[in-house]
Design a binder for these strands. Structure first.
Lengths: 242, 242
DNA sequence: ACCTGAACACCGTTCAAGT
DNA sequence: ACCTGAACACCGTTCAAGT
């Protein structure tokens, strides 16, 4: 993710405070630059360890300077989540509602895998999730369902099923990724433990996993298609519509 | 949740350090009492704000005393999550694999709604989730699928679909609960905003919500049944089995 | 053996002070 | 107008000291 390329031209250059490398002038802060730094750090190390002081450091600035552009950590995090929602593809001008919603869900799935913190943050209970891009995303799903002929009730139903699968499955998938720091010895030891404790089916399951490296996308689509077909069955028989 | 009733008899009574109310002797600490206090506080205020110092306070003890029974906060949290997994009903001696797995999923859903922190913690990416009760839960799901006639691959597939729906949908549901602190004025204002910003379908959706108070359980079962039926379709035609 | 107080290295955020 | 340093009220955890 390199936002800087397309955005560098718009940055004000300020000479007043010397940056970490005093020879080059430092770019002015802005909410956008802060968001970019936050996203980059979150992509790298996750959101959980992320601190305002770290973000400041990364920008060559004290943490307190951030508060000139952002009301607090919570607002900053919800801003970057909304940025991700803004990138979900919603414009599939196909006449087929199933194909269109399928493509939106897969686009969202891809983005959430790229930025795991977005998925994690939206699903954190108690966090405020009402933000413009998210609302647009929901509106677009509801609109496509209603225009396909679903009743308001079934459209709500369908949105719930689709959105919960898109977010929920993806977070589940992310949580089951093998962390990069895990050693082969650890895995070996784990399998040995499964074997010794009579977890025969789990052992078999682990072997399926190692033989079929990553079928996350297909599994996401498997559940997604079940939902789409299940919704289709709720639709009244279509005589006039294509 | 009152574990204390059934467990009180086993507590050692220690007189040495005076409790907050000096007249009564204080119960000895134990991992179990610490877990109970942690679960109670997490039920009440959520996990995010929970601190070791708070847990200590609640037990009339310094935070540092907890470390005599628990290696750290992470171990403590994974212990209480595993406790919840241990309460999921796995023993459904019905011959029908679908009914049996359905009942397990619904039992898990109920427990996760009761203890939202459990669902939140298991799905936190990067957290260690390998614990005995969780392994037993997975093994039991895999076993039922394999015994129903699924191949190792399809059983893995099925476990993924069932578990991701059970955890993922429930967390999604929890995240969409209206927080208790929200005022009617706020909701009113929100609806007004939706109206003004041309979010017609969202407004309609909000109205569906307010007319049908809570249909979370039915929606959980809706997705669950889609998965179970979808899996059934993968099963080879059953000539000998019931 | 178990609990404590002080301490360390962190948090998010406020606020008066600098330029 | 924007950035800073010091400070406040918190974290999880270590460790030597108490009993």
């Amino acid at each position: 993710m390199t936002y800087s390329v397309s955005l560098a031209l718009h940055y004000k250059v300020v000479n007043m405070p010397a940056g970490p490398n005093a020879s080059e002038p430092r770019l002015a802060l802005s909410k956008q630059r802060i968001m970019e730094a936050t996203m980059a750090l979150a992509d790298l190390n996750g959101v959980r360890g992320l601190s305002m002081r770290q973000i400041g450091d990364h920008l060559g600035v004290q943490a307190m300077s951030l508060y000139n552009y952002v009301s607090g950590k919570e607002e900053l995090l919800s801003s970057i989540v909304d940025h991700v929602f803004g990138e979900i593809r919603l414009d599939f001008p196909s006449g087929n509602w199933k194909a269109s919603l399928r493509a939106t869900a897969i686009s969202a799935h891809d983005l959430f895998l790229e930025h795991p913190w977005s998925c994690e943050l939206v699903l954190t209970p108690g966090s405020i999730w009402i933000s413009t891009a998210r609302l647009r995303y929901i509106e677009s799903i509801l609109a496509r369902l209603r225009l396909a002929g679903f009743s308001p009730q079934d459209a709500s139903h369908g949105y719930h099923a689709l959105d919960s699968h898109t977010l929920g499955y993806t977070l589940w998938e992310l949580g089951h990724r093998i962390p990069s720091g895990i050693s082969d010895d650890f895995v070996e030891e784990l399998l040995h433990q499964l074997d010794q404790n009579n977890y025969g089916y789990l052992l078999e399951h682990a072997n399926v996993h190692s033989s079929e490296p990553d079928y996350g996308i297909e599994e996401f689509a498997f559940g997604l298609d079940l939902i789409l077909e299940g919704l289709d069955a709720l639709l009244p028989p279509h005589d006039t519509l294509k």
